[in-house]
Design a protein around this nucleic acid. Structure first.
Lengths: 222, 222
DNA sequence: AAAAGGCATTATGAATACAAAATTCCCTGA
DNA sequence: TCAGGGAATTTTGTATTCATAATGCCTTTT
């Protein structure tokens, strides 16, 4: 297996720090110790500081002039706002996908849908989630809009680190599957408006379900 | 008395390069001469390279490992895709604004609208555009969603540098004003769905009008 | 005991130095 | 004439150095 070889250190460092943040090894609001990370990664400060600048403009890190970097605090409002935005983008991806997707593309998504249904019937949550994600990714790809994909992935990255406390209940699961049934129907008919609407509501529903955990309730405290 | 703006060089350098790109002083696809810009700005390579990394993750610049930076090429498709996205975001901003805006906020926008109408009647195009922009900005602000605002501004930045060849015809101008009339009506009634729909169509219309100029027709050529 | 001031230490921002990659240019040989 | 092949040069990526701002600690003063 040939992993992509990084051509520059700062990209690799940025990826590593992204992982640290996503996994919570660098906690929300925590100061990012420049010197320590340099030693840990075995690089000098130059590529590390370049990586931090990139992460800052991705919204993961906060740079305070002359006072170092910290992991950007996520507030509950920020997470909700991000979900609102992602819902709108998913909706758009559905509309565009209906315009651009090929018949084979639809067939592939239908196949994924059947696979997901099987995992639902077998109550295999992890596998269900994985295929679920593949479906949404496929629609996003089918939108054939790279800027949209870039933006969506950025937003997704930002909220990846939040952990949800509520469990998936049967009724919510059922509702999600039912949404997906309607999605597939709309996709087959290439009804962009309809698919867009379903996707928007689908994600809103998802956030309602998920009680967000480990996030500040109102405002950031420096 | 204005606050001290720049605490760090890389931010200032990034702003300066943004301007160069926006004004076309650095043309699309052009190689960005590191050494020259350092001399021009009177800074060392470190802050300049940091700025370039930021600009790259903003989508304005392309970084080729070991081969320098160039101004990212805009293709016609990319511009269209960006407009589709911006339309969706404007739509969302309208929906959210209707939920969050205060009565005073609505009044302020109505006042701007009246001002804009006056410029329309007086055929003052530049002034019209300025107030027009203020209205859209006000709605975006009223959405009370900072993530949305950040993303919209980034997209807006990306396409700022395209120059449009077609002139604003009377009929298009009339259509735009009529859209705005409907927008104000929807806003007054806090009809988010309606306002969102109008805003989405409004921007689509805008791109249709504008024949994009100085942009590659199909694909980027390295 | 608490607040204020100042010195020492540390961390940050920017410039410089150095190694490696890419590019240029000139030469050679068909 | 032109393709190929190296040096020489330039450019790029990273490490290191240096100046300055921030932080912590200790003393002094009330």
């Amino acid at each position: 297996m040939s992993k992509i070889q990084y051509q520059t250190l700062y990209r690799e460092v940025a990826d590593r720090i992204r992982e640290l943040i996503e996994h919570g090894d660098l906690a929300s609001g925590q100061r990012i110790p420049e010197r320590e990370l340099c030693e840990q990664f075995g690089v000098s400060r130059t590529p590390l500081r370049e990586a931090l600048k990139v992460l800052a403009s991705e919204g993961l890190v906060e740079l305070l002039p002359n006072r170092g970097a910290r992991v950007r605090q996520l507030t509950l409002k920020m997470v909700k706002d991000t979900y609102d935005l992602m819902a709108a983008l998913e909706g758009l991806s559905g509309e565009l996908a209906c315009q651009h997707i090929s018949d084979e593309g639809i067939a592939r998504i239908c196949a994924l849908h059947e696979k997901m249904l099987q995992h639902y019937r077998d109550r295999e949550l992890a596998e269900y989630f994985q295929v679920n994600r593949q479906i949404h990714e496929s629609i996003l790809t089918a939108s054939d809009n790279e800027v949209l994909q870039e933006m969506y992935n950025n937003l997704s990255q930002r909220v990846k680190r939040v952990r949800y406390s509520k469990k998936m209940t049967d009724s919510f699961w059922e509702r999600a599957v039912s949404d997906h049934e309607k999605m597939i129907e709309a996709l087959k008919q290439r009804d962009g408006q309809q698919l867009g609407q379903i996707l928007r509501d689908h994600l809103c529903n998802k956030l309602e379900v998920a009680a967000v955990d480990g996030v500040l309730d109102d405002r950031e405290s420096a």
